[in-house]
Design a protein around this nucleic acid. Structure first.
Lengths: 343, 343
DNA sequence: GCGACTATCCAAAGCGCTTTGACGAATTCG
DNA sequence: CGAATTCGTCAAAGCGCTTTGGATAGTCGC
């Protein structure tokens, strides 16, 4: 059933039917009621492609995930982010397009997305410290919001990010307050912007207290369980082992815990762990007392915010860039305690 | 730059340019070369909406995830599935649309998807044991592939699934061979079809060996780490505690391990664990010897297969339904051993 | 009672592409 | 050498919708 058929059935013009359905005022209320009812009973929905062609709006936003051809890891955080964004899209009648693009074909992929006109705006995932995408998208002229941000760049674009620096600074201070001095950082890959900021927070806190940064206690890689385990295992075997770990993700933290327990050590008593917690639905750090002491910030919420912002940008172009900085809560859980006394 | 502008610039008609770009034979090779070059230099890409309207093909497939309004868990397996599917879409020039639909609005959502014409086919996620979506989609007439299947229904539709029954039957037998008799099953939610099949495999194996099924050893819920932990903790505290656990997901297994170790027990020696392993990129159960003994089947591969099938279905309609059953490998890891002797 | 509105509705153009049907020009064939 | 093909190209219709620019009829003011 299309507009033409529906209008014929009603004995009205396509114009009138279209206007009735889209809430324009130039149509009598009685007519509108009739049209709405007919649309309902015949289960009519305007063809999105045609509508989109006519209006110039795709009513869709694209999510682009860079995927490296070698390390084929898909960030598990993505599921929850997407869930949050979807809620917003659903409310506003937008669709969501997903593209995983190999990072050697990125420029082309973005240009194609714009030229093809399948989306009205996009959300940029996984920004790197020196990410070139902002410049590219600016040039292309497609509205976009970055989930995260790009440190080596001013705030001349829209982003939604967690205050990673502050979160890790606070977490480090928390451990220092407990007397820990050998604090390991199990970070994400160095090219990722969030990892750089977390490292900065960690270093700042240490330096403020006059504790030297020991490169031997810092690891950077894709945040898998195995990586957390291997890193912790290796460090714990050193003669001057850390007494605390700061992890960039719950998944890595689970690996660290495995290494700790495998060594016969007890969390909190012997080794403290703080992890960043994206509040993932399937990996909840909940309960009355959280398992891990954590810097928590809901990635789902970030998804909602990104989606809202990009829709706003699409509907009201020409705005000045806005930034939204989310503060992570520091939740005290069962994984931290005073540094053990050396005897 | 659109077709019209490009054709004017070339001094050719839109028809010729379109044909040249789309590889039709009715155009001189010299002309085609000229057109391709011009398209390249002007960075021309046909507008997808217009193309789609003209051809009647959306060049997109939809992925629909049912989301319950209460338990808002997004299956973490999804990221990897999508990554697999994307590879295929990229090769064939298809886009991927994501819709999370609240499960009380499912019927409407599917009808809308079809009527709006944004997708050519869809992939159904998270089938329930009595899922009504197959009937609905059949009626709507949109090509679809189910990831998983619906037990209470014949094979009159396309699906790609793991042989869950067999996998869990084998895993159970493996534990029985090791002398375990009290084997707990940490399963997914009972409404999920895969959970039903896994339960069936588990029960079959037990019954074949004359071991009674003890309902007290069976749990079903959304597969979070906390659920695995809580279930194991509770069971291990019973006087007749299980000596082995069979888990439906790595994440739940991590929780089980936590409960085991917290109790001062050692994996493999005191308690054996087998888990299903979707071979998720961020949760690899790798290494020379896997951490967990597991029934492994790559969900990424399943994503690729589903995508290929749905594209085939779109391009060659009217085919008889096909089913693709993937066998899970039983990988022996560090989490299983002979049942401890009671003394 | 007549011009000026106002409220409703409509015909037609246009969004950017594909595709049908036609048409000269070049080529081949009998 | 005229007829029949084939080749290369084009104009125009059409995909399903929105939107502009009227048109028509009823309403109002004086």
């Amino acid at each position: 059933m299309n507009l033409k058929q529906l209008s014929e059935k009603l004995g009205l013009s396509q114009t009138t039917v279209s206007r009735a359905l889209n809430g324009y005022p130039e149509v009598a209320e009685a007519t509108r009621a009739k049209v709405l009812k007919a649309a309902e009973t015949h289960n009519y929905r305007p063809n999105a492609r045609a509508k989109s062609l006519a209006t110039g709006r795709a009513m869709a936003v694209g999510h682009v995930l860079p995927v490296s051809n070698k390390g084929e890891i898909v960030n598990p955080v993505f599921s929850d982010f997407v869930a949050g964004a979807s809620e917003t899209y659903l409310q506003h009648g937008y669709d969501m397009m997903l593209s995983l693009v190999p990072d050697d074909a990125e420029e082309d992929a973005y240009r194609a997305l714009a030229a093809k006109g399948t989306v009205d705006g996009i959300i940029v995932h996984g920004p790197r410290t020196d990410d070139a995408r902002v410049g590219l998208l600016r040039e292309i002229g497609l509205p976009f919001v970055v989930h995260g941000r790009i440190s080596r760049r001013g705030d001349d674009y829209d982003w939604v990010d967690v205050n990673n620096l502050r979160a890790f600074q606070r977490a480090t201070e928390f451990l220092l307050d407990f007397g820990h001095r050998r604090i390991a950082l199990i970070n994400g890959m160095t090219v990722m912007d969030f990892a750089e900021r977390r490292l900065a927070g960690y270093c700042t806190a240490l330096q403020d207290r006059g504790v030297a940064v020991d490169d031997g206690l810092i690891r950077s890689d894709q945040m898998t369980e195995g990586y957390g385990y291997a890193s912790a295992q290796e460090m714990l075997a050193q003669h001057d082992a850390p007494t605390a770990f700061l992890c960039s993700s719950m998944i890595a933290a689970l690996g660290v815990r495995r290494a700790v327990e495998e060594r016969g050590l007890r969390m909190a008593r012997d080794i403290s762990i703080i992890t960043h917690d994206d509040d993932l639905s399937y990996l909840s750090n909940g309960g009355e007392v959280p398992i891990f002491t954590a810097t928590r910030s809901s990635v789902r919420q970030a998804g909602r915010l990104c989606a809202e912002r990009v829709i706003d940008l699409v509907q009201n172009p020409g705005q000045a860039p806005q930034q939204h900085l989310l503060e992570a809560e520091l939740m005290v859980g069962q994984s931290t305690g005073p540094a053990p006394q050396r005897m």
